[in-house]
Nucleic acid binder design. Sequence first.
DNA 1: AATGAATGAGGGTTCATTCAT
DNA 2: GATGAATGAACCCTCATTCAT
Lengths: 198, 198, 198, 198
Amino acid sequence: MKEDTKMNIMTKATKLFAQKGFSETSISQIAKKANVGKGTIYWHFDSKEDLFFSIIKQKGKAFFDSVIKLKDSNKEPQEIIHEYIIKRVEFSDNNYDVAKMLINNNEMINRDFKEVIEKKHLEVLKVIENTIQKGIKTGVFREGNPHEYALMIINTANSANIFKDHGLKDSTEKSKAEKIFEFIMNGLKGKEDRNAEK
Amino acid sequence: MKEDTKMNIMTKATKLFAQKGFSETSISQIAKKANVGKGTIYWHFDSKEDLFFSIIKQKGKAFFDSVIKLKDSNKEPQEIIHEYIIKRVEFSDNNYDVAKMLINNNEMINRDFKEVIEKKHLEVLKVIENTIQKGIKTGVFREGNPHEYALMIINTANSANIFKDHGLKDSTEKSKAEKIFEFIMNGLKGKEDRNAEK
Amino acid sequence: MKEDTKMNIMTKATKLFAQKGFSETSISQIAKKANVGKGTIYWHFDSKEDLFFSIIKQKGKAFFDSVIKLKDSNKEPQEIIHEYIIKRVEFSDNNYDVAKMLINNNEMINRDFKEVIEKKHLEVLKVIENTIQKGIKTGVFREGNPHEYALMIINTANSANIFKDHGLKDSTEKSKAEKIFEFIMNGLKGKEDRNAEK
Amino acid sequence: MKEDTKMNIMTKATKLFAQKGFSETSISQIAKKANVGKGTIYWHFDSKEDLFFSIIKQKGKAFFDSVIKLKDSNKEPQEIIHEYIIKRVEFSDNNYDVAKMLINNNEMINRDFKEVIEKKHLEVLKVIENTIQKGIKTGVFREGNPHEYALMIINTANSANIFKDHGLKDSTEKSKAEKIFEFIMNGLKGKEDRNAEK
DNA sequence: AATGAATGAGGGTTCATTCAT
DNA sequence: GATGAATGAACCCTCATTCAT
């Protein structure tokens, strides 16, 4: 089957790109790992960049779409943020390097591709932003600029990648996502201090 | 003057490494940007890697040391966290890509160098951790695992890099650091909700 | 045909290495002479060293093996020395520089390769040495240390390379090999003197 | 003293050229070994080649001149050949690589220099040739072509270089030169055989 | 569809040479 | 006389890409 070969190449390429980055991964290495000739890769993909982008598109689309779909749910704002965190952490767990690529705006990414990604990013941002706006209105979220909050949440959630490296083990009580969510919700400040604030 | 040439190379190299990453930046490009011959770079640095590491070491040391020095201050926990955020944001503002390099464990980084960086990271982590422990004791910080909190704060602060890209403009009222600090302290949850919690 | 390209490269490289030595011959020159791209050389050989060694191995093996095979012949000692000289002269005639490389211990030759060559050299030495020992026993060769004689014969024969440069033209009567053989056998001393010796 | 610096450079350069050859020895290495700046070498010598040739000229001249002087001696032919061998062996012992350079016609040697060397070579050849001619006339040397004999003797003596590598240790009785001389004089053939010849 | 030999632009690096000091 | 920072041509080698099979 045609798709088999293509998928095989993508799978193996993903592993290599994740391990060593785009530049340090060669077509030869991918070909060897995938047990195909170098020419075969060029039959399925226009270029090394095309292969790389195909992977990001494939893996990224699932994540982005699942997040964007949240806007159509009837869930409470807090629940939506919660689910976003879960999805974001899962994405980093399963596609560490793809996630990394999507966050950093590497120069090697060509313009056309960048636009596509940027659009998706903005859609996600909008979902979070709207959610926060709704939450502020209903009083479940603190007053403030929804756009700024959205960016901060996304950025905090983006740190899931690095989070992982620093070995925050999941205790039995709460998962990594749970901890991030709670931190985003409540911050560090103690109750004493909060009471004083009032 | 000798130092002038070396510094010039480092400055221009930093800009290029920041724009395109290590692999995608060539010695020729750096030489051209710095207006020196390719050989001149090799007079001042042993290799491309050496140049790269020299930059990270130079810029990174100042940041790390200034943060580690915080442990000797008599300031209140909240104030220390506050200063850390300020320093971290400044670091990202002034050395965007150096900061990025220090966060990501790129494969190409050699072992010896990695160890040095890791040690610095752990020192910083310890400073934050101890600060939080003290804060929890005095009730200014929420109960919880200081180590986990420290990691989350650092990771959140690490996101300052990405933060910047997404154009969170500094309004007149509060600087970027201020906003991150407040977010870390208070989280997103509204007061209504907090009262309910009690 | 694959072998054609590889052989072509080796042939042209041999000519260049012979003319200018290893260091002074560049891959670009070889590629140009062989009418192939630089990359093609690296498809067929791991490195410039590998190409160089491949040539020596290929050409050297034939010579060494043909000499070592002499030990299994039933020929008289004199005849074996005779044949060795012929083969040695032929080798220098046909592969002047390969022969030169095999004699000189160039510093750049790596250890593993040197060992292989050294072993072959010792095998040849042993063949000559045993032949001389037999000849001394039967009285056809002068008394003396067979090992030392063998070394001297080989070294004298090695001079076939330089011999050639100095233009000792082959007269009608005797070939170059014949003259070397006779010189090795009889030396320079006149008969008068020899009689006196007795 | 000026000469001191120049001589120091030449001495250290000789050692390095001998160890690693012309191409593999760099001006930097020589400068370091001689404890002078790279510029200093270029003050005393026009180029790397010039330094190399200066060394060969200096060391080679002494050898060539001492050999050529033999023609003015009143010694017997045998004695002259004997002294030539001694001088040749000494030259290889003391200036292994200089001797090697003088034998091989490396392409890197420029035309002008080659001519000078070639002339010296021919002068030496003439000395040996004339000596042999005289010896043949007086019957101490075998009949034959003096020119060819001269070349063979020189080439055999040239092998002193390689001779050395193969570790022909000097026994108490005879020095390396003595053995080469005897071999040149008498050859390998046994007395039995010689008697038969008569 | 698939292959892999061939290509050449470009990469990092070395080093003989120059020149201001 | 002496220095060493600076230079750039040339080196070895890699690798994305092509194309005949």
